[in-house]
Design a protein around this nucleic acid. Structure first.
Lengths: 232, 232
DNA sequence: GTCTATAGGCTGATAGAC
DNA sequence: GTCTATCAGCCTATAGAC
């Protein structure tokens, strides 16, 4: 990760449009403009990368969506790859955070239910992020290779201990932990990555609140019952 | 689907290299050369599209991998999109066929087990096909939109009847059929689409026969038990 | 049917006036 | 910091000799 922009509000930024065009005074204002423009570029880039893939995305389209001249985009991010890295960087902890605080002392039924719900709702609220991540992995993870082998790997190892601990206590069946996590990731992210397919199959319209709720219920039920998790 | 090349041996074609360069006689041989070259192009294109995405793939690279001059590729397929359509077309029935013959009279435990195993093995044997399909859907299905709303939709509707029938007979729980299918698709295709991630998390090496076997076992077990399918 | 050479268009990136 | 004008390179696709 070249630049760590994780905590900047890169999305949902409803441009509180003071300081419209030309600089007025310029002192501490500068940093604000910079942050705001970078955030706009990242938000625009997320849309374009999600829809077109890395190679299909053009800096021209990103600039257009960010309502900035193309050269301005290159002023903030020297290369297209730099924009992409910033976008990916923004996405990463979104992925790991939801299951972060869970320990062996938690109740498995509740912990897994919450995790599944959180992941489905992430698919509902941040489908673009999910698609970009999926695209990155499908392409062979050219940017995220290191992350997969270090951070994610460790994260899975930790959570595998928790799952094995629950099994040892007889709170659930001894299911292969990594494969269980794969199943949960895949089936929850499916509602973001394959949303067009789900829409087409279910009713041709945008997925509704009910669809996501049914998804949560179905996945939760199959996983809990399928892993023999004792209800609390 | 512009051209239906479904049944041509587009892959695993170990170029049985008679008739090396220049044409010798040319009569019924012509059709063979044509078929062989088209198959080589499709096979090469599958690799490139899977690795680079639609926009990232170049006809030059496809030609290089097919060991043909670039202009020759354009002779068989006039546009890049035509190559892509041929590749996609080749993939499609691969997706629907495995669950095709299943009816309400079959045993759910056996039918679902076989389906899951077949899908995982498809991920093992044709990961590139799976990735191209995933990429197409993630991008919003520009080519497959019609297919999703017609063929696939009907297929899901039919299979939903079978699943509901089983539930009515008390052979399994009344699970929302489409969402169950989504879960099975997602969790099985995961081993193709997110293979780099699975590799990195599991052991940094290529997935082994055992990995796929464990995947089959884990998914099958969770789905069957999770849906309350009676063992036969 | 094959293949070289090239047209024509779009891309990422920059120079340099404001 | 902003933005117009522009470049060099790569891309798909084709013309035309063999």
């Amino acid at each position: 990760m070249t630049e760590d922009v994780r905590r900047s509000e890169a999305l949902g930024d409803t441009q509180n449009g003071d300081n419209g065009g030309t600089a007025t005074k310029n002192s501490s204002k500068t940093g604000q403009i910079r942050a705001r423009n970078k955030a706009r570029i990242i938000a625009a880039a997320e849309e374009v990368f999600a829809a077109k893939g890395y190679e299909g995305a053009t800096t021209a389209e990103i600039a257009l969506k960010a309502a900035l001249p193309k050269a301005n985009v290159h002023y903030y991010f020297s290369t297209k790859e730099a924009i992409y890295r910033a976008v990916i960087d923004n996405i990463l902890d979104l992925w790991l955070e939801p299951f972060q605080r869970i320990t062996e002392n938690d109740d498995p039924a509740e912990a897994l239910s919450t995790y599944i719900r959180t992941k489905v709702m992430l698919s509902r609220d941040r489908p673009l992020a999910s698609r970009i991540y999926a695209n990155e992995i499908i392409r062979g993870a050219p940017i995220l290779a290191d992350y997969l082998g270090s951070d994610l790997r460790e994260w899975v190892a930790e959570k595998s201990c928790v799952l094995r601990g629950w099994a040892k206590k007889g709170l659930m069946d001894p299911v292969e932990p990594a494969h269980l996590l794969f199943l949960i990731w895949a089936s929850t992210q499916h509602y973001a990555d394959f949303q067009v397919q789900a829409k087409a199959v279910l009713h041709h319209r945008d997925l509704t609140e009910d669809d996501f709720e049914t998804a949560v219920q179905t996945i939760t039920r199959i996983v809990l019952k399928g892993c023999g998790v004792k209800a609390d």
